[in-house]
Structures are given as C-alpha cells and as structure tokens.
C-alpha cells in the first residue's frame, strides 16, 4: 500500500519517537559513564573515560562480572538442554498429559518474579539450603527454562515428523535419529533459546536479589550502588554490561553466516 506525504512523515516521526523512548535512557547512562564528576548531573561539563579504566582494574567489578558470567553460563547450558527435551515433549510427541504439561510448563513465566524469588527463598530455607550463586542458578532456571522450552517448541512445531520417520525407516535407532536429524534441525531454535537464556539471566535482578544470599551478581551490585555509594563506576559497569550483551547478541545473529563461511573455507 502506498502512503501519502503526510502519512509518511507521521510514520517517520512516530518511529523516531518510539526509538527515542526505548534508547534515550540507555544513551543517558552512556553519557553518565563518561562524566568526570563524581555525582550524576546534566548537562555533563567535563568528559573522561577514566572510569572505564578503573572498572577494568577493579577486583570487585571483575569478581562481579565473573560471578554473573558463571551464573548466566550455567543457566544457559541447562536451559538449552531442558528446553530441548521440554520442547520435544511440548510440540513433537503425542502423550497422555501433553496438554496439561503445555499449560503448566509455561505458568512460571507469568508469575511476578519477586513472588517467585520469595517463594524459592522460603523453599531453600525450608529444605536447609543456604542461598548462594548456586541457588540463583536454580531460581533463574525456574523462570528461564520455560522460555527456552517455548522458543525451541516454536521450531519443533515447524518440523516435519516424516523426517524422523524416514531416518528410522532407513535403519537409524533412537540415538542416531536424534543425532542425525532432530538435534541438527532444532539447533537454530536451541541457539536462540541459549541467547535468550543468557541475556535474561545476565540482566536478572529480582530473582537474584532473593536467592544469591551472600553472593552478588552485577545487577544487584548496580542497584546497591545506586541506592548508596554512587560513583560514575555504576553507569560505567552498566555500560560494560550492556556492551557484553550486545556483543553476544551480534555473535548469535551472525553465527549462521560465520559457520557457513567457515564451512566454505574448509571445503
């Protein structure tokens, strides 16, 4: 459909407005991270990248990054495995309680994360588990594994069941069918789910706040420093965290192209 001049201008204006709404807060954090002043104030009078140097050198920041990376990494791996088999049960195979499973598996996504965090904390206390980064992994998984399942299930729904039947018909056993057909065909969904899992765990605050105990992840530290003890290190670490997410996202999006190029170079 062709748009008129006025409609076209209105659409461009609307687009800019939406983008500004989404990205301006992040831009302001970016500005704050390069401010020389110790306190947050606009407009920024003196610019400096010193805080980036301090952030890289800081042991605290390094420990926080490492812990957050560890939690997100383990959550990603477990969510991919759980999501893969969950998606097969969700979308590929007919079984007696499938419909009930489909409903129950998605329910944790809709719980408020604070309530979920509180419930998990109470549960850990009840069974005598001391909260730490390990309990945070469990908490993140309760929320993220259903999302990973859903992402992989979307891929599994578009999968022709005859492909697995054909493999079996030609002599493949269950493991060979999984290895040769199911896993490769669901892999784009598994990678997407992994990306989601990492980014959701990496940036998660409410579940971590309730379940990390004495340990602390990056979002928790950012919040604590905003409430008391603010310095430009806070927006700087925030920007580094965003940059890490962006790099991972870019890697995830270009992975198929990179793999294809690599295969071509090899052959």
């Amino acid at each position: 459909m062709k748009t008129g001049k006025f409609a076209h201008a209105a659409l461009v204006f609307y687009g800019i407005l939406v983008l500004a709404f989404l990205y301006l807060p992040l831009v302001s954090v970016g500005f704050a991270s390069v401010s020389k002043a110790r306190y947050l104030s606009f407009p920024i009078r003196k610019y400096s990248t010193d805080w980036y140097g301090k952030a890289v050198e800081s042991d605290t920041v390094r420990d926080l990054l490492f812990l957050s990376l560890k939690v997100a990494g383990i959550v990603t791996l477990l969510a991919m495995v759980m999501g893969f088999f969950g998606a097969l049960a969700f979308a590929r195979y007919q079984w007696r309680y499938r419909k009930l499973f489909q409903k129950l598996i998605l329910l944790p996504i809709f719980f408020p994360q604070t309530v979920l965090g509180l419930a998990l904390l109470m549960w850990f206390n009840a069974i005598g588990v001391i909260p730490s980064w390990k309990t945070a992994v469990v908490a993140h998984l309760v929320w993220i594994a259903p999302i990973a399942t859903l992402v992989i299930a979307i891929r599994a729904y578009s999968f022709d069941p005859a492909l697995e039947e054909a493999a079996r018909d030609m002599g493949a056993n269950t493991w060979e069918t999984l290895r040769e057909v199911t896993i490769p065909l669901l892999m784009p969904g598994v990678v997407s789910a992994g990306l989601f899992a990492f980014l959701l765990s990496w940036g998660n605050f409410p579940l971590s706040l309730f379940t990390t105990g004495a340990d602390s992840t990056l979002p928790e530290w950012l919040y604590a420093k905003m409430v008391s003890g603010y310095s430009p290190l806070v927006p700087t670490v925030g920007m580094l965290s965003v940059a890490a997410s962006a790099v991972l996202l870019a890697l995830g999006l270009t992975a198929p192209w990179l793999l294809r190029s690599l295969r071509k170079m090899r052959s």
Partner: peptide, 30 residues
C-alpha cells in the same frame, strides 16, 4: 529400523540440513 524395506514419503522427507549427496548417502552412513 530393523526391516529390510524402505519408503518414499508423501512429503519426500529429504533432510533439509544435508546436501543431495549426504541425503543419498544417509542409509549407507548408518
């Protein structure tokens, strides 16, 4: 998978992640 018979499916069920050659070689690879 233990029967000495084979079927050409209605949808053909060719593996989209494999080349023509790899599809043909599939039963031999197994």
């Amino acid at each position: 998978n233990k029967r000495p018979t084979c079927m050409v499916f209605q949808s053909l069920a060719l593996f989209p992640h494999r080349t023509v050659g790899q599809n043909i070689e599939f039963p031999l690879k197994l």
